[in-house]
Design a protein around this nucleic acid. Structure first.
Lengths: 322, 322
DNA sequence: CTGTTAGCGCCTTCAT
DNA sequence: ATGAAGGCGCTAACAG
C-alpha cells in the first residue's frame, strides 16, 4: 500500500495521498504492527538484560544504564532474573531466542559455556557483563575484580592488619574467584600467606554475609579485618558484628567490593572499591548495539573499566592487642 | 507441516514421524519463531512494566514481584523508565503497543488520562500500579497513601509533636497528594491545622529531600518533626539534618513513607510506613494476566493493600523548649 | 506516483 | 496420519 510509504517516509507519494493517509491514521488510531515488521526484517529492536537479581542495587544501576543507552537508539529492553541458576538462565535464553531478541546482555550465573554456545548456535549476539567466562571468546564489559581486591586488601595491610578474612560470593562465580585471587596476591606480597587466613564462600546476599561473619566470629582466632565480597555481604557482616557488640572500625575493620548508592544511605560509612555500574550497563549496551549494526571493531572486545577505592569510615588501624 | 503438530503436541502424528522431526530439531537446533506465532495469535506472551525510575528500591522490589509472577505463567516482562515524564510515558506506550505487548502495568507519571485513553483505544489491558488516576475507571493495585500518612502523622502527634513539616513528592502525583491529605487530616483531627504547617513539594529523590529540608531549616520557626514523602526524600532529609548538626531523634524527629530494603542498610533506623512492594507487583501482575485470559472479576478492581507502621529510632518526643 | 505480487514463519482448515 | 492452501501485517521489488 501507499500507507507503508507514508509511514516510513520512503519512496514517492503525492501530497494529496499522504494527507489522506495521515488523516485516516489519526482518525482510526492506527499503530503499525512491529511484530509483522520484525518478521519481515528479522529485527525486533529489542535486546535483553539477563541478571542474577535485579534487586541488587549494583544490577539495578547497570539496568538503568542499559535502558538509557538502549532507548537512545530506539531499542527496548527485556529483563530477566536468573537467581544465579544456570537452569533458569538457559530457559530465559531460549524464550529470548524464540522472541527473536536481537541481542543479549548476560551476567552469567556460572562459569559454564553452555549458554554462550547456545546463543552462538542461534547467531544471537551477546555481551557478557560483570563476569568472565573461561574458555570462550566473547565481548565482555566488566571491572578488574582481581586488581580491585588486591588494592583493597593492600589498603588494609597498609593500615597494619595482619589477619584478614575474606567473605566471598559463590565459589563458581568469576567475580568471587577473582576477588579471592586478588586478596591472596596482596597477602602473598606482604608475606602473610600462611594458609591460615579464612576464605569463606556463600551467596551474594545480606544473609550470606551474616552467616559467614557469624562463622568467622566463632573461630578461636579472630581476624582484625574483614573483606566483604560485595555490598550485600557487607551489610550482613555489619549486622552480625553489631549483634556481637563489635564496633567498626574500633574493634574490627570492614571493607567491601561495590558501593551502596548514595541515594539510599544516609551516612556513607563503608570503605569500598566501587565499580561504575551505570557505565558498565551503558558501555555494554553500546557495544552490543554496534555489533547489531555490523559496526564496531572486528575483534572480540574485552572492556575493563576502572574501579575506585573510596576510603570512608569502616576501616582503620587494627586494635592493639589487649 | 507435521512439524507444527509435533511441537505443539496437537493433532495426531505417527510415532515414526514424530521421532524423525524431533531428531531434526535437535540436530538443527531449531527454535520456533515466537514472532510469527504472535502474528497469527495476536498474543505475544509479553507484558510491560512502566515505572518512573527502576533505581528507586520500591520500584525495584515491585519489579521483582512482577517478574516472578509473570514468569510463573510464562510471560516475559519489558521494563521502561519514564523519569516522571508524561511525554516519555506516551512514547513508551506507543512502542509497546506497536510491539503488541499483551498488557501493561503502569505507574502513571502524572494524573493525566491521556495514557489510559490511548491504551483503551488500542484495546490494551492496563493495571495501574501504586498511584491513582482520577476520572478513569481502571484496575488498580496500590496502598492507601492517605490513610498511611494519617496514621504516621498521628503517631507523631501522639508523641507530642505540634509542629510538623511535610516534605512531599511532585505536586501532580497522586501519592504525594494523598499523603499530604492524610497529613492534613491528622493535623485537623488534633486541632493543629492553623495553616502554618509547612508543606513542600519536590521530586521523589534524595536531592529533593535535601533541598526541602534545607528550606524548612532556614525558616524562622523550626518544626519538631519532619514527614518525608518517600524513602529517598528521607535519606536527603537526614543528610541535610546531619549537615546542620541536628541529631535525630533528639533534636528533631523524622518519619517516612516507604521502607529501605533491609538487605541494603545496616541499621534499620528510620521509622516508616511500609508498603508491601513485592506483593503490589505480584498482585498487579496476577490481575493483569487474569484479564488477559478473560478470567477474573467482571468489574473494575481497585485493590488496596495494607501499609504497616514500623516504629524504629528516628522519631521520639519533641525536644523541650530551651 | 501508486498498486500488485510475493514471502517472512506460524497455524487452522480442509482435503487427501 | 499427513499435506496443501491461505492469511496474520508488513514491505521490497516490480509493474503499470
Amino acid at each position: 500500500m501507499t500507507v507503508s510509504r507514508v509511514i516510513n517516509n520512503s519512496g514517492h507519494t503525492s501530497r494529496e495521498a499522504r494527507e489522506r493517509v495521515e488523516a485516516a491514521i489519526a482518525k482510526l488510531g492506527y499503530v503499525p504492527n512491529a511484530l509483522a515488521r520484525g518478521l519481515r526484517f528479522k529485527q525486533t529492536q529489542t535486546i535483553a538484560l539477563v541478571v542474577t537479581d535485579i534487586t541488587n542495587p549494583f544490577f539495578t544501576t547497570v539496568a538503568r544504564g542499559v535502558e538509557d543507552a538502549a532507548s537512545e537508539q530506539s531499542f527496548s529492553v527485556m529483563f530477566c532474573n536468573t537467581d544465579e541458576s544456570q537452569g533458569e538462565e538457559l530457559e530465559y535464553l531460549n524464550v529470548l531466542v524464540q522472541k527473536q531478541t536481537d541481542g543479549v546482555l548476560l551476567v552469567p550465573a556460572s562459569d559454564s559455556v553452555e549458554s554462550l554456545t547456545f546463543l552462538k548456535s542461534q547467531a544471537t549476539p551477546v555481551v557478557v557483563v560483570d563476569r568472565r567466562v573461561s574458555g570462550f571468546q566473547v565481548d565482555t564489559v566488566r571491572c578488574d575484580s582481581e586488581q580491585g581486591a588486591y588494592l583493597l586488601v593492600r589498603y588494609l595491610i597498609e593500615l597494619g592488619h595482619r589477619r584478614i578474612a575474606a567473605l566471598m560470593g559463590p565459589r563458581a562465580v568469576s567475580t568471587a574467584i577473582d576477588r579471592s585471587a586478588g586478596y591472596q596476591r596482596a597477602l602473598a606480597e606482604a608475606g602473610l600467606d600462611d594458609g591460615q587466613h579464612p576464605v569463606l564462600h556463600d551467596s551474594y546476599s545480606q544473609k550470606g554475609g551474616y552467616r559467614m561473619a557469624r562463622e568467622v566470629l566463632s573461630s578461636s582466632q579472630l581476624p582484625t579485618a574483614l573483606f566483604a565480597g560485595n555490598n550485600l555481604i557487607a551489610v550482613g557482616v555489619l549486622r552480625a558484628l553489631r549483634e556481637v557488640g563489635l564496633r567498626v572500625p574500633e574493634d574490627i575493620s570492614v571493607v567491601a567490593f561495590d558501593d551502596i548508592p548514595e541515594s539510599l544511605v544516609m551516612d556513607q560509612f563503608l570503605t569500598v572499591m566501587t565499580q561504575p555500574a551505570y557505565e558498565i550497563g551503558r558501555r555494554a549496551t553500546e557495544l552490543l548495539l554496534d555489533r547489531l549494526c555490523g559496526e564496531g571493531p572486528a575483534d572480540v572486545q574485552e572492556i575493563v573499566l576502572p574501579t575506585e577505592l573510596v576510603v570512608r569510615k569502616s576501616a582503620g588501624p587494627p586494635r592493639p592487642l589487649a
